[in-house]
């Protein structure tokens, strides 16, 4: 009996895996098949955007039933590679494309990489509601997560060791934090990695000396620190407005990339994502819609 459940699970996972690999490369049809047939669009890339992409796909497929949209993750780099190789229609990326990657798209696909900003993401730095600290600079935050700063006192908090919380290493948020806060250095071994931002929030709720990071949408029962770009900069609280005007230092755009301007179904989907209906989905997921105009 003990084997039955893992067994069933393995088969389901294997099947799901097969299904995914079979369909993923099917997205070569930029031109779009003839009208009336069911059409397929593939999105691949950023893990941060997988859920966002899936919500978009669900909502869009509900509105237009003959369309199938497949969303997979793997990371922004994986998505960009897929765009270069022509195995995805749209690449989801949580970072701007590098010049070298743009050149490769041009060379292999014969069309320039076209960037479409689709959403905004602000990363909040969480502390317990009882923590007297109100703000932190990016260099100080780096010191904390690299394990160089061990006590709260060094950064103006209570006299107690800092307890670090973070996300598992396949999380897009992990990657973003590592890149933009830690300058790609390794997290300290003592960072406790929890499954999902909700778990980080719940842990910090119960831990007066904890610190964590994640989407602003999860903020409940804990506080978000104001963030300074460096020690001389003003401290900015994360909000829709500061994310949109760019004053919050760890806010970023989320992007779609296509080889050439999107056409057919791709264009309809990208336009829909930028419309009020598409932008309305963003806040349900926890990110911010694009600034208007």
């Amino acid at each position: 009996m003990r084997f039955v459940f893992p067994l069933v699970l393995t088969f389901v996972v294997t099947l799901a895996g097969c299904a995914r690999t079979e369909h993923a490369p099917a997205g070569g049809g930029d031109g779009g098949p003839a009208a009336g047939e069911s059409q397929t669009l593939t999105l691949k890339g950023s893990d941060t955007m997988v859920i966002l992409g899936q919500r978009w796909a669900e909502a869009y497929m509900k509105a237009t039933p003959d369309v199938t949209i497949q969303v997979t993750g793997g990371g922004s780099g994986t998505g960009i590679a897929a765009l270069i190789n022509g195995t995805t229609d749209i690449c989801e990326s949580s970072r701007p494309m590098k010049d070298k990657e743009r050149d490769e798209v041009q060379a292999k696909r014969g069309a320039p990489a076209v960037e479409t900003k689709v959403a905004l993401d602000a990363l909040a730095v969480y502390v317990s509601a009882s923590n007297p600290l109100t703000e932190i600079s990016i260099p100080a935050l780096r010191g904390v997560y690299l394990g160089d700063t061990k006590g709260w006192k060094a950064i103006g908090g209570p006299d107690h060791a800092i307890v670090l919380y973070g996300r598992e290493n396949n999380s897009g948020t992990y990657g973003y934090f590592k890149e933009h806060v830690l300058e790609n250095k390794d997290f300290a071994a003592a960072v406790q990695t929890l499954a999902g931002t909700a778990a980080v929030v719940s842990a910090i709720k119960g831990d007066p000396f904890g610190i964590g990071y994640g989407g602003i949408a999860y903020l409940e029962g804990i506080r978000a620190l104001k963030v300074k770009k460096d020690d001389a900069s003003p401290a900015v609280a994360p909000s829709l407005q500061t994310a949109q005007d760019g004053s919050y230092p760890i806010a970023r755009f989320l992007y779609f990339y296509t080889a050439g301007a999107p056409t057919g179904l791709g264009k309809r989907f990208v336009d829909w994502v930028q419309s009020q209906a598409g932008q309305g989905v963003i806040e349900q997921v926890g990110y911010y819609p694009l600034p208007k105009g």
Partner: peptide
């Protein structure tokens, strides 16, 4: 009294989105 990471937890947390 300190945090720890097990083999099972590692597989569960990392296999989900690792590049096949």
């Amino acid at each position: 009294g300190r945090s720890t990471r097990t083999i099972t937890a590692t597989i569960a947390q990392e296999l989900g989105e690792v590049v096949v």
